[in-house]
Design a protein around this nucleic acid. Structure first.
Lengths: 140, 140
DNA sequence: TTTCGTGCAAACCCTTTGCATTTGC
DNA sequence: GCAAATGCAAAGGGTTTGCACGAAA
């Protein structure tokens, strides 16, 4: 299992500086159980460190993406959300009516992934895929 | 089967005005076999009708979406692409390496759609879904 | 004629960038 | 000390909006 501090450790290992801005950005991402946007990270960091700039948050996110430490999911909101890569992958059902987000284990899409590989030679990256539609309640 | 003019007909039926700007926007969408972006529609319309404004294209697209006459696909380019709803649905495999887009029949995702409905009561809208990954060639 | 649609320009949102300054190591 | 990272402010890309003018029915 992965524990808190993983991301910081990897940054340090690779020779990146552990600035307070980076630490707090990472902490916000790790604390968020679900998915967090750049704005939300910024809002959280600024309460403890009022002089941060949102561009620093974006730069940190880009670094973490590059290093494969966080992944992005697009929920079709016009902005992207971030998730620690170490926390395991999952997929999401996004209700277009009520906005509910239902988490889906990796297993559910495993058959699809296999089909695509077998039939098309296509290696699908389904990490944090968002599937849109209507949830049970809104479907009634 | 659907034929050219479907969209125009439906607009008229619902009492919307058939302005040249709308006709040409619709024509651009219907002519494009694949998926077309707002900018591309605009570029096409402006050659025949130089005074159009891109905001009119956007307003037309919004109207057509509202009426269910076009659907959108997000290929992760930071912009959305449009497709006539009447032309039948399909899905896409988008190669993150070479940018290739492989079309996928509706049948391939039918099992997934059924699974989601049965197991989660979730009615997935998979029209023009884009799945990211690596195509056969880039996978070697 | 009268409501609907358009052009224009400005604003919008999220994200990125150039540059001078600061800071971790 | 010095490269790396930050803050600031401005620009960027795609999209939306307010308002007065123009045109479809």
């Amino acid at each position: 299992m992965h524990q808190s501090g993983d991301i910081v450790k990897k940054l340090a290992e690779q020779g990146y500086r552990l600035t307070p801005q980076r630490m707090m950005t990472i902490s916000a991402i790790e604390k968020s159980d679900g998915h967090i946007s750049a704005e939300e990270i910024y809002a959280q960091v600024i309460t403890k460190y009022p002089q941060v700039n949102i561009s620093t948050v974006y730069r940190t996110l880009e670094l973490l993406k590059k290093l494969g430490l966080v992944t992005e999911t697009d929920f079709g909101e016009g902005r992207v959300r971030y998730h620690p890569a170490g926390k395991g992958h999952h997929h999401h059902l996004v209700c277009q009516d009520c906005g509910a987000i239902i988490d889906l284990g990796e297993a559910v899409l495993a058959p699809l992934k296999n089909d695509l590989l077998r039939e098309y030679g296509f290696s699908a990256d389904l990490r944090h895929l968002a599937i849109f539609g209507r949830c049970v309640n809104c479907n009634k």
